[in-house]
């Protein structure tokens, strides 16, 4: 292979010697060809390797982790009073669901997070649109938001308790605050990153300012807005967990606080599992939304 200039073909019977081990060549290659000894075969990816399908490979890691956990509890490496086994957690989930306690708690928590997302979403997106679309809006809004976003919102809990008491309001407010910033940042960036060439082309087509916003800028910003939505929904659950530590008398947080009193690690873990699944479910909804709204996008989807 070091001297590709030599194109002279060795006779067929000599080729095996020149080629080296015949194992390297796929069986599909026709044997009667001469003059190819110095060439490297391009192997079709379908024949390259018989691999385990991706949907089988993906869950192996998490399942191994679960197994490790179960084994650790069985062998006593982790005491049952410190860490309940996966089996116990599943059983606890069953009990909590059966007596309706979990369902009620989820409903309460979902209401909190839903209200927070709604309020924070409206605030974040409308501020971003004002700042993104209008120069005056940018001057008035952007500097303040950029300043406030550096404040860790969880740090505002004491202040919120003083302002809003310990009822539902501080919890919803905390979620709203957590949601608003990522949505603002992504929406604003989305509006500002709309392809200037498209805006120019749209202007030559005679679109009015309103038409330009509706047909060019908003759809152009949409991919970024949806990134913001996914990010902020993640933050929403985080904010909820923090918020529900504030004197919760209902909801998943209250279940967890009670469990802590009685050292019920199985209930705590069951609640964490519930949080995780709620987060996953919401993420799946956003993915579905993306698939529907962004089907026009020529984006790279991984190979």
């Amino acid at each position: 292979m070091t001297s590709p200039a030599v194109v002279q073909a060795p006779p067929a019977e000599q080729r095996a010697v020149v080629d080296g081990p015949p194992v390297a060549r796929p069986a599909a290659l026709p044997e009667a060809r001469s003059g190819v000894a110095h060439l490297v075969p391009v192997v079709p990816s379908s024949t390259r390797r018989r691999t385990v399908p991706r949907w089988v490979r993906r869950p192996i890691g998490p399942l191994l982790l679960l197994l490790l956990w179960q084994v650790a509890v069985w062998t006593g490496t982790a005491g049952t009073d410190l860490l309940a086994s996966p089996a116990t957690v599943v059983r606890t989930l069953g009990h909590l669901t059966a007596d309706g306690e979990l369902g009620g708690a989820i409903a309460v928590s979902l209401e909190r997070v839903g209200k927070g997302i709604l309020i924070g979403g409206i605030a974040g997106i409308s501020l971003a649109l004002l700042a993104g679309l209008f120069r005056t809006g940018e001057d008035l809004i952007d500097a303040s938001v950029q300043m406030l976003r550096t404040v860790p919102f969880v740090g505002l809990i004491p202040l919120f308790i003083i302002w809003f008491g310990i009822g539902e309001t501080p919890k919803v407010a905390l979620v709203a605050l957590g949601v608003a910033f990522p949505l603002y940042l992504n929406t604003y960036a989305g509006v500002r990153n709309v392809d200037a060439g498209l805006v120019e082309a749209a202007r030559t087509l005679g679109l009015s300012r309103f038409g330009l916003i509706r047909h060019v800028i908003l759809p152009g910003a949409l991919p970024n807005v949806l990134v913001g939505v996914r990010y902020s929904l993640g933050i929403a659950w985080l904010a909820l967990v923090f918020a529900e530590q504030i004197n919760a008398n209902r909801g998943i947080g209250q279940l967890m606080m009670d469990a802590q009193e009685f050292q019920r690690t199985d209930v705590i873990l069951a609640c964490l599992v519930v949080y995780a699944f709620l987060g996953l479910a919401v993420d799946a909804i956003v993915r579905l939304l993306e698939r529907g709204l962004l089907s026009w996008r020529p984006a790279f989807s991984g190979s």
């Binding site: 060439g197 120019e200 749209a202 087509l205 679109l207 038409g211 152009g220 026009w296």
Partner: peptide, 18 residues
């Protein structure tokens, strides 16, 4: 470059702004 709006189907791009 054609500068078509990628989020509008071809025919909607053509009559955009009319």
């Amino acid at each position: 470059s054609p500068r078509l709006l990628p989020w509008k189907r071809v025919w909607r791009n053509v009559v955009l702004g009319l």
